[in-house]
Design a protein around this nucleic acid. Sequence first.
DNA 1: TATGATGCCTACCGATTCTAGGTATCAACT
DNA 2: AGTTGATACCTAGAATCGGTAGGCATCATA
Lengths: 110, 110
Amino acid sequence: MAKDKADLLQGTLDMLILKALSLGELHGYGVIQRIRQLSDEMLNVEQGSLYPALYRIEQKGWVSARWDVHETGREAKFYKLTRTGRKQLETQEASWDRLVLAIAKVRQAT
Amino acid sequence: MAKDKADLLQGTLDMLILKALSLGELHGYGVIQRIRQLSDEMLNVEQGSLYPALYRIEQKGWVSARWDVHETGREAKFYKLTRTGRKQLETQEASWDRLVLAIAKVRQAT
DNA sequence: TATGATGCCTACCGATTCTAGGTATCAACT
DNA sequence: AGTTGATACCTAGAATCGGTAGGCATCATA
């Protein structure tokens, strides 16, 4: 991938996807675009990462999927956050915050 | 591992180890203790994660190792940050900061 | 008509952390 | 004396997950 885009750390992708979908129903490809846009082009999710992740997340019941046609007339698979998924997003955000805090503490040390 | 300790994300361990060693030479087991202590018990590095990581890091030239006896009279393998390792720490900290920033941007979205 | 963007997918690779074991020394307690 | 827990090192294998690289189809645009 492009060198100016940061690689994701394992465990952050689910949270990003759930967050993107928390802003409204969206199809897979759109999730990539939304994450890229929201992060000011800093995060680029590869398709080879996204689709398996969406599948995993759907299996866990965090999103529901349905095929539909969007305004441009093209077919796409739309994903929607479930109630469980919203809970999961909160959980993952809390974990992320704890980790960021813990690492900040270590880095403060002199 | 204990449920009150956060699991690490892949990619953060190296940075934590390098940071711990940047505060002074230390043996492997001590790295675990130092990270735990600096993070207010929030981060717990497993031995099965640490030793392979130290080996990898040594292979990359980021730390140098030597056997020695510490004040308690016990033998231990002491690791020291190399000049390259210090550069690497800066690089990894910068990457971490960028990732945290990017994720914060996504999470700000309403 | 050719190219690039959109849109879906899969197979495999590589990296890394964890679990679960093993070994040994030492202090402390029973 | 024996047991336990902390200290100190290590390895093998499992599991996870993101990336690379491929495939396929549609559509707008040059």
